[in-house]
Design a protein around this nucleic acid. Structure first.
Lengths: 194, 194
DNA sequence: TATATTTCTTCACAATTGTGAAGTAGTTTC
DNA sequence: GAAACTACTTCACAATTGTGAAGAAATATA
């Protein structure tokens, strides 16, 4: 009995119940994978090979713009799915890189196997709809935050909601994620201490 | 034969093919609805009653913050679905208002009927996944734009991608949507003319 | 452990955007 | 068509954030 799968199931159960048959399919087709700090598990320009579930560890999602700057679009820790989902599903090359910020434990499934579990299982489609809706709500909130909050307010909010990110992720990554210049964020952080 | 349904079907066909049976279900359960400029078709605090498809016209989605300011989260014209989808599906009160900025032609379906068409039809679930994915991509891009572009650049981009919004929507709505102070946007627009 | 590399902080200054008020223009309503 | 209302522009000034450089601190590598 692999603990990692229990973490996956508990995460899924936040949205839908998983019948035994779907659990077994997960155990059969999701493969454990250990990645080390700095490792890029999906690269820009390539079709994403896996749908990744972070069991533990921190990851980031970034792309390089015309000026060669890395733009970080997402930072997350487990438990959580973390995939360039659209490109993965449509088998199209992604412009994003998925990289481990710390050592990570993953469970991952190949693209073809997702079609198999969709056919043989029961709840996958329902879960997909649920998690897409959930993700959509989160993204809507991020848009609102950008449109209505100052840089300082966005940082404070992140600090409250995801203190583990502040504690574990380099400032320059957080700055890019929040759309703030690293120097400015350093100053903001310094002024907050007072 | 109602032209409005052809507009709906053509819009849906951008993502999935609609078999005859699903077309008939749409014709049976989607009802035409005309709304006039300024009309609020879903109100904050209430469970959204309809899933709305804009055939023609411009609508906005907004909520009121603690200070009583209207924050506009979305502006769109037809053809397009326009609903507080999460709250509609989960039958929970939404904090958002859907309002017509111009006279609008809609096709709308009641919540209970969505369950019926889901059961009797074929492609609804697949379409839902597709359009959620599409919406997710659009929202990701909006986040990136906020994080990487200046106020002026965001306005210019909107102008390029959705010139009809610039032409048809009051400046103060556009300002709120872009997260810019109306006075600032007026100045930005003025300086762009030179 | 020493060295090299990367990240973070700090600074002065610049650029952008926000604020609130006042006036102008435009629109709606009766 | 006049009055009332709403939206837009403009202004001076304030606040926030960006920029680029230089040094300090932290981390990785040999």
């Amino acid at each position: 009995m692999n603990d990692n799968f229990e973490i996956l199931f508990n995460y899924v159960r936040l949205l839908v119940d998983i019948p035994k048959i779907d659990q077994d399919l997960c155990r059969k087709y999701f493969k454990p994978f250990s990645a080390t700090k700095g490792e890029i598990i999906e690269s820009s320009g390539k079709v994403p090979q896996y749908h990744n579930f972070i069991v533990s560890g921190f990851m980031r999602n970034f792309y390089s713009n015309e000026l060669g700057q890395e733009i970080i679009t997402d930072i997350n820790d487990g438990p959580r799915f973390f995939t360039s989902y659209n490109h993965f599903m449509h088998r199209t090359p992604s412009n994003e890189n998925l990289q481990c910020i710390t050592d990570c434990e993953l469970l991952r499934i190949k693209r073809d196997d997702v079609d198999i579990t969709a056919k043989l299982g029961i709840t996958q489609m329902e879960y997909t709809v649920q998690i897409l809706q959930q993700q959509l709500e989160k993204n809507k909130q991020r848009i609102i935050d950008h449109a209505t909050l100052s840089a300082e307010q966005r940082y404070v909010k992140l600090q409250k909601e995801y203190p583990s990110i502040i504690q574990n992720i380099p400032l320059k990554y957080i700055a890019s994620y929040l759309g703030i210049n690293p120097g400015s964020l350093s100053r903001i952080r310094n002024e907050l201490v007072k």
